[in-house]
Nucleic acid binder design. Structure first.
Length: 504
RNA sequence: CGGGGCGUAGCUCAGCUUGGCUAGAGCGCAUGGUUUGGGACCAUGAAGUCGCAGGUUCGAAUCCUGUCGCCCCGACCA
């Protein structure tokens, strides 16, 4: 058997690249650092978008669109942000090319922009500059806006989905009349949208809590995050929600009159998740056979492989497959599947043998495979295989065709739960309390994982750990035990344990 | 940006050390036939500016210089 996927145990990075390539998710483009998202990868992102968009809408947000280009002076207005993003901005300096004999196209030196434009690395500045005109009164608040777009951050080192120079994301930007309302918003987005989406749709368990001062978003008062553990036990920041205080309102002079007629600066939040989630999805569930997709995000839920050799067998099995597909599509539409009927594919290609098809659909991560051959038809039955339970042993034989649609619907839900439970067990099994820094240094690489340790709360200590071990504080979990202790590095008092890990 | 590795057909790679005649293989692809319950087989065929640009040479995939890109490690990074 020609194995296409490098086993995780042999080379985790190569395994990841193999999955991305062989499942047809994305490839590197000829533009440095920029990827082409292929149809199967984009379909997953579309399903993520749809679920997230619904969560945002259900919590009162609306979509809008702001420009790709940001005047350099806007970016400069919020000092922390300017500093944070300066090193990774693409800049537009000219607005015209010209054809020159022998040289082809050259940048027209006559066409220099009066003010250079930055390709958005994030849109707080252009949006708050716009909000100045939109916000006059407390009656204009809250303003709850999201946008789906691309952003560019000129990264030194890129990895498909996980870190690319251009990526797709959503960024929410809200304005509020009070500090409390803005803080509630940042928390609500984190817990009711991001955590909920990660756990219930992606089946990816996440820790929730604030970042440390050193890890927060430039321009934020504080940053909340969802943080997940990948199968190599490294952490992935999967989403962030920022309380921005009045920093941007002040930088862009956004004020409103409150009920007493007083002028106040508006309070802000911003929050985002990106195509990085696709990388997280891969690294949470997939195995050495290929991609494993949680049913709620799978572009195809069920593939039916009719098995035949003679034309009359093809005719019979394909007809049965069609009938089964109709049965599945005819199930009551359940928002659980992503706001549309179950997606079914019949693979009736006759240039490939069934075994080939089984492997191919496993590589692509289709949650349920139905095998339907002459022997099954004799019994009016089919064979069901769940993607996360590989091997012949796990197949369900002799499932009556009449019962298959209902059975498959149940299996999809069971698989979703099983993936989440397995991922959570993996994370919990690889999360350790630790009190000795020497011990920590020994264990951070092998076995690795999340380490719950006391920390004195200082930037210096965090930087020292980072410099000495490459591990960072991923999050100060909301649900940590109330347990005073001593910093594992300095021995100074600590209010509770934080999560140290190596991260993507 | 520093260290290392690699760029030859869509993919994986051989050939390079020691320059030479028509640049190869496997997979994939096309056509025909036999097959078909876990990656079938036979036959025929299409497909490569040897990453790019210079240079050395009678002659460069092969040697030299430069350059671009990818991968790994570091630095950097929400």
């Amino acid at each position: 058997m020609a194995e296409k996927v490098t086993p995780r145990s042999k080379d985790y990075s190569q395994w990841y690249l193999d999955i991305v390539q062989h499942a047809g998710l994305a490839e590197n483009s000829d533009v440095r650092g920029c990827m082409v998202i292929k149809p199967h990868g984009y379909a997953i992102w579309e399903r993520m978008q749809r679920a997230l968009d619904r969560l945002f809408k259900d919590t009162g947000h609306v979509n809008a669109y702001f420009p790709l280009f940001i005047p350099k002076s806007f970016l400069a207005k919020e000092e922390e942000m300017a500093e944070g993003f300066a090193k990774e901005c693409a800049v537009v300096t000219h607005y015209r090319l010209k054809a020159e004999k022998g040289k082809g196209l050259i940048v027209d030196p006559e066409a220099r922009l009066e003010e250079e434009l930055v390709v958005r690395p994030t849109s707080e500045t252009i949006i708050w500059n716009t909000y100045r005109n939109w916000i006059q009164s407390y009656r204009d608040l809250p303003l709850l806006i999201n946008q789906w777009c691309n952003v560019v951050r000129w990264e030194m080192r890129t990895r498909l989905f996980l870190r690319t120079a251009e990526f797709l994301w959503q960024e929410g930007h809200t304005a509020h009349a009070t500090q409390k309302e803005a803080e509630d918003e940042a928390l609500m987005i984190l817990m009711d949208c991001y955590r909920k989406f990660a756990e219930e749709w992606m089946a990816m368990p996440v820790l929730t809590g604030p970042k440390t001062e050193g890890q927060k978003f430039p321009g934020a008062v504080y940053t909340l995050c969802i943080e997940a553990m990948m199968q190599d036990k490294k952490a992935l920041q999967a989403g962030t929600s920022h309380f921005l205080g009045q920093n941007f309102a002040k930088a862009f002079d956004v004020t409103f009159q409150d009920q007493e007629g007083k002028r106040e600066h508006a309070w802000a939040t911003s929050w985002g998740v990106s195509t990085r989630l696709v990388g997280g999805l891969i690294m949470t569930h997939s195995d050495d056979h290929g991609l494993v997709l949680p049913p709620r995000l799978a572009p195809i839920h069920v593939v039916i492989v009719p098995i035949f050799r003679k034309p009359e067998e093809k005719q019979a099995t394909c007809a049965a497959a069609q009938q089964l597909a109709d049965g599945l599509r005819g199930l009551p539409v359940d928002p659980w599947y992503g706001y549309e009927p179950i997606q079914v594919k019949i693979d009736d290609r006759d240039q490939h043998q069934p075994g080939f098809k089984f492997n191919e659909w496993e590589l692509k991560g289709v949650p349920i495979r139905v095998e339907l051959g002459p022997k099954d038809l004799e019994k009016n039955a089919c064979v069901l295989a769940r993607r996360d339970l590989p091997g012949k042993e796990a197949k369900l034989f002799g499932v009556p065709l009449a019962e298959a649609p209902a059975k498959i619907a149940v299996m999809l839900k069971e698989m979703q739960t099983a993936l989440f439970d397995r991922a959570r067990k993996f994370r919990d099994d690889n999360t350790h309390e630790i009190d000795s820094y020497d011990n920590f240094k020994k264990k951070i690489d092998e076995p690795g994982g999340f380490f719950l340790a006391h920390w004195d709360g200082t930037r210096e200590t965090e930087d020292r750990v980072s410099a000495e071990t490459k591990a960072t504080i991923r999050c100060i979990p909301f649900n940590r035990a109330k347990e005073a202790g001593q910093c594992m590095v300095t021995g100074r008092p600590s209010a509770g344990r934080v999560v140290f890990a190596k991260a993507y």
